[in-house]
Design a protein around this nucleic acid. Sequence first.
DNA 1: CTGAAAGCGCTAACAT
DNA 2: ATGTTAGCGCTTTCAG
Lengths: 330, 330
Amino acid sequence: MTAGDVAERAGVSISTVSKALSGKGAVRYETKQRILAAADELGFQANHVATSLFTGRTNTIGVITSDQFGRLTVPVMLGAIEKLSEREIALVLCDGRGDPIREQHFIDSFLRRRVDGILVTGAGEFGRDSLRGDLPVPVVYAMSWSRDENDASVVPDDAEGSRMATRHLLSTGREKLVFISGPQRDDASRKRLAATREVLAERGLDLVHAPLFGEWSERWGRQAVKQVILSGVEFDGVVCASDQVARGATEALREAQIDVPRQVGVIGFDNWDVMVEASQPPLSTIDMSLHEVGAAAATALLEAIETGRLEPGIRRIDCEFIPRESTAVV
Amino acid sequence: MTAGDVAERAGVSISTVSKALSGKGAVRYETKQRILAAADELGFQANHVATSLFTGRTNTIGVITSDQFGRLTVPVMLGAIEKLSEREIALVLCDGRGDPIREQHFIDSFLRRRVDGILVTGAGEFGRDSLRGDLPVPVVYAMSWSRDENDASVVPDDAEGSRMATRHLLSTGREKLVFISGPQRDDASRKRLAATREVLAERGLDLVHAPLFGEWSERWGRQAVKQVILSGVEFDGVVCASDQVARGATEALREAQIDVPRQVGVIGFDNWDVMVEASQPPLSTIDMSLHEVGAAAATALLEAIETGRLEPGIRRIDCEFIPRESTAVV
DNA sequence: CTGAAAGCGCTAACAT
DNA sequence: ATGTTAGCGCTTTCAG
């Protein structure tokens, strides 16, 4: 099933078939119809491989992840997929697992396949190393950002998200806040703490307890709250750097007969459906708009592919505040 | 950067370069070294597109999902990716969303791209329609299975998993079991119920309460247990068709001052880390080995691509029982 | 408006 | 052991 078959059936030459189907050359209306009909009858689909060989573009972009497509990277990837499939661009995936050797291997494979561009993603606990300097195709980092300022990265505006969270808690009349997060070395932990403190400072306030760093788990959230309660410090709001932590915190409060949201407000981060909805009460939280992060990264990559220009630096996508009961005013 | 450049640099012809690099033709050791050196210096990577055009194989397989790569399909896809990347086979992804029009669109795109095979995946609540009869490449369904008996599908052995769960509960000395599941129309619900009853029947037992169908959520798990408690029926074990349901059930039991596992044992299904670990106590459960499902589907597809033969029918992959505290004997 | 011909980068017979 | 040649299926000048 090639263009030759269609040509034969329509009684024209191969090049006329090509022109008719691509719509690029000048073909008489009537012959065009004949060709289209023939192509249709034969179910002809132009061989994309051959086209790519000629044009040098594969309409394919390589996606490499460092975290096995987890909870954070999947939405990013879906956002990118959606954007790219509008333009008939396919994604080929591979899982670098954060191992530079594996990554290098896959990059080579991408280059052999002549992908038009590369998207790098990952959970983004830390800034990551640049892939390597001399790639012949544009590279965009999504969610996971490159420490190299000449690279282009798209990430959620974490800091502003945390500010929104804190401002919201303050706006419900609470002033005695506690901050619970995951590991201290994680980028997200540090940024979210700094942002929380910044908002408090603007109002002449500070956290009423030293920030609590642990792990990204419900268990830690529970434990941290118990610790705060034990410390005897008075508090009326808990800023959590993840929904898991927030859910754990909420549970521990309930167990200690402290009413959420009446006595203490709790806000999470992530808008992870299974956490925020199952929590009692459901959690107010910050949505990182990961879908948009992926879509924006894809758009930037597309533009770079088409124009050859890629604006370096880190682009931040707005987060969204999602109100639920855990911070309601009662 | 083509084979021609390498040839020129090594002072040989293009075909000799091809032979040297592919290792297929006979090339004198010394010239081969020269060619390898030249290729290395130039950083030459053979153009995969050109090779594909010639060989007719793209070393690419298309993956189409009906559920946006959710919690169940991601591990399946990762299992497949791992298997396939061993052989330098890439996956191109798209998201059909269960919409036949979209699916058709992507299938066409796959065919234009001359993928070597197609993998269909999805959460598998129901058996799905076959893609369409006359595809020129092999198709394997993973997790989501095709209702057409001529197709090849790979799924977890759900029924045996449920039997294991029930047998385990019985083995801990419990006999008065309750069954809580998601929507009744879901395939998984019905199969898991049937399997549970089958094991009970073997021992001359039956559920002590009518099976409870609702949704795949913690909330429903909580509600269902409350309902059972309210009914006044005596029970000492809860078979749940998902970890979310099991976690909700466990919570409701705790709230009702019923000790898990001392008074009632609870077993889940999925081995979803964030659920089983955060539950108090942690949940015993059944792992569906989704990674293996993906890997097995990939293997079957590879074989079909290589040999042209694809064994039709549904292949079931063993589940694994994961003991934790919620069913411990105390 | 249509067709012949060259070529994208590679492979594999077939010479030499 | 190496080189020459003819494609893989398409696009695109360039003639006619």
